[in-house]
Simulated scan of single mutants.
Amino acid sequence: MDEIEDYSEKIHEQSNEHAHEILHHSESKDRWVMYVALSTAVIAVLAAITGLLAGNHADDAMLTQIHASDQWAFYQSKGIKAELLASTDHVLVVMGKQSDTVDNKKIAKYKQQQQDIMKKATEYQKESDTHVERHDVLARGVTLFQASIAIGAISIITRRRPLWFVSLGFAAVGLFFLIQELFF
C-alpha cells in the first residue's frame, strides 16, 4: 500500500506544480485548474483517512483471528485431555481394574469447557470476519480516491475539464464507501 500512496503523492505533487504554472502563465479561463488542485488536495486527505481506517480494520482482523486460533488450539487440547483420560479408563476396564469415576467427571468437565471455548472461538472468528468486511469496503474507497487523484492530475495536464468531473465522480463513490463504513 505504501507504493500506491507514494505513487498517488507524486501524481498529486506533479499536478499541483502544473496547476501553479498554469495559474501564473495563462489566461483567467484556465483558473479552473486551481479548483482541480484544491479538490485533489481534499481527495488526498480523504484517501489518507480512509487508508488509515482500512489499515486499522486489517490489523484488528488479524489480531482477532489470532485470538480465534488460540481458542481453537485450547479447544483441541481439552479434547486431547478428555480422550487421553477416556483411553486410560478403557485400558483399565480391559485389564479388569475398576475405572475411577473422578476421571469420568474430569472428562465431562473437559467436554463442557470445550463447548465454552468453542463459543469464544466462534465469536472471535465472527469479529475477525466483520473487520475484514469493513477493511474491504474502506479499501474500495481508497482505490477510488487514488483513481480520482490520478484522473484529476490527467485533467490538468491535458487541460480537459470533463476529466475533472470524472475525477469528482470517482471521489464521490469513494466518499460513499467511507460514509457507508462510518455510519452504517
Score class of each variant (00 low, 15 high):
Asp2Val: 03
Ile4His: 13
Ile4Gly: 06
Asp6Lys: 14
Glu9Cys: 01
Lys10Pro: 05
Glu17Phe: 01
His24Pro: 07
Ser26Gly: 08
Asp30Ala: 02
Tyr35Gly: 06
Tyr35Val: 02
Val36Pro: 07
Ala37Pro: 09
Ser39Gly: 15
Thr40His: 06
Thr40Gln: 14
Ala41Ser: 12
Val42Asp: 11
Ala44Lys: 10
Val45Ala: 15
Thr50Met: 02
Thr50Lys: 05
Leu52Gln: 14
Gly55Thr: 08
Gly55Ile: 01
Gly55Pro: 03
Asn56Asp: 12
Met62Asn: 10
Ala68Tyr: 11
Ser69Gln: 09
Ser77Thr: 01
Ser77Lys: 08
Lys78Asn: 07
Ile80Ala: 06
Ser87Gly: 07
Ser87Ile: 00
Asp89Thr: 00
His90Ile: 00
Val91Arg: 12
Val93Gly: 03
Ser99Gly: 03
Asp100Gln: 01
Asp100Thr: 01
Asp103Glu: 04
Asp103Lys: 09
Asp103Tyr: 01
Asp103Val: 01
Lys105Tyr: 14
Ile107Cys: 07
Ala108Asp: 15
Ala108Cys: 10
Ala108Trp: 08
Lys109Ile: 11
Lys111Cys: 04
Gln114Glu: 14
Gln114Ala: 07
Asp116Trp: 09
Ile117Gln: 13
Lys119Met: 09
Ala121Lys: 03
Glu123His: 11
Tyr124Thr: 02
Glu127Ile: 07
Asp129Tyr: 12
Thr130Asn: 14
Arg134Gln: 10
Arg134Pro: 04
Asp136Met: 12
Leu138His: 10
Leu138Lys: 11
Ala139Trp: 11
Phe145Ser: 15
Ile149Val: 12
Ile149Ala: 05
Gly152Asp: 06
Gly152Asn: 10
Ser155Arg: 14
Arg159Lys: 06
Arg160Asn: 09
Phe165Met: 07
Leu168Pro: 01
Gly169Asn: 05
Phe170Ser: 07
Val173Ser: 11
Gly174Asn: 10
Ile179Ala: 12
Leu182Ser: 15
Phe183Arg: 11
